[in-house]
Write a protein that binds this DNA or RNA. Structure first.
Lengths: 205, 205
DNA sequence: GTCTATACATCGATAGAC
DNA sequence: GTCTATCGATGTATAGAC
């Protein structure tokens, strides 16, 4: 018989603990999204969950470790939406259009991204390295996508893959910022379709 | 004879006061650019100027008023670089290329812009209204510029002025973010030229 | 016009009771 | 596993000496 009383108790506690950690992650996402990392407080996060700041720190050790967990968890949520890096070419851009549709359904995720991105611009910020690496990788994947579009004969003439990659990354971030600032001022998906249409031949919908 | 001793003294004090206010504005620009408004402290600003926090607050009344002064002063510095809103059309885009050249020479200005823009996405942020109005106006000017480019027969076929305006604004912000994150990863001016070239016929250089 | 002193809030983090 | 209690640092802002 597997499962002594002690084990059950441990397992039950572990399940509850995981649920609590998840609740803390949700709350931390909200707070860091709204106030950033530096100005967001552990106490505010704790209040959202209904415990004290000491309780939060018990689960994650430090505020910094909590930030790392939030970034990691955010990536896990967004990853399935992103185009598979191996299916490069125009499929990548179609995938990014799916991301654009997802953004308005989860404003907290977009807000978290923009807030921490701008904040982490400071080299002393705890998430600085994270974002530098992330952007290097993403830009590289986009360059590949535009190069593959060229071999697919779908890249419009005169378009430089490197510059198009930087511009595409920039458009996605900039549109999110405009949308967060004033949600009805810009249709992210439509603007993105127009952007891509000037660079490549998108497949028919 | 204008200028009694009392008046001279007052005037001298006023000149010194203006110089001090200017020094505080410079320091506040640095601090807000690096840490944002909420996480940046009056004390840090004061230390940069060589006075105490009480001294800083004497000149501007409150941290919030200091932020307003920083935003206003930043606009005064950047305004002469921007294209005259009346000379619309492709001249506008040439003007934006000048801005792109200016950015790397004044990283603090770019950093201030990006940091406060993202932070002010929160509706409760003291600069929220400022940025909402600013972006509405700038986007409107860009729409006009693309429409004028159309009447100049320089707009490429199939380009929507509204969407092109949003995308252009987005590209400028996004490229600045990428450049701040990793200055040698992107050439803002080259990427911007490529972006415009896909939308309009730029004049020969 | 700038200082010291102070008030008062909030921060992250730790120690130990329960 | 969460609490209370507490530490030391830091935050904005005000009052009053100089």
């Amino acid at each position: 018989m597997a499962g002594t009383t002690a084990e059950k108790r441990r397992r039950g506690a572990s399940v509850a603990s995981e649920a609590m950690k998840q609740a803390i992650l949700d709350a931390a996402t909200d707070v860091f999204a709204e106030s950033g990392y530096r100005a967001g407080s552990v106490r505010t996060i704790a209040e959202k969950v209904g415990i004290t700041d000491a309780g939060v720190l018990h689960h994650f050790g430090s505020k910094n470790a909590l930030l790392a967990a939030v970034l990691e968890w955010r990536d896990e949520r967004v990853a399935p939406l992103l185009p598979d890096p191996r299916t490069s070419g125009v499929e990548t851009f179609v995938g990014l259009l799916r991301v654009a549709e997802y953004i308005p359904t989860e404003p907290g995720i977009a807000r978290l991204h923009c807030t921490l991105l701008a904040e982490s611009t400071d080299p002393t910020h705890p998430a600085h390295e994270f974002f530098v690496k992330r952007y290097d990788r993403t830009r590289g994947e986009l360059v590949d996508a535009f190069r593959n579009a060229a071999t697919q004969r779908r890249l419009k003439p005169g378009i430089d893959p490197e510059l198009a990659a930087s511009a595409t990354l920039a458009v996605m971030d900039g549109l999110q910022l405009q949308w967060l600032l004033r949600p009805d001022a810009v249709d992210i998906r439509k603007a993105l379709v127009a952007h891509f249409s000037a660079l490549v031949e998108l497949p028919e919908e």
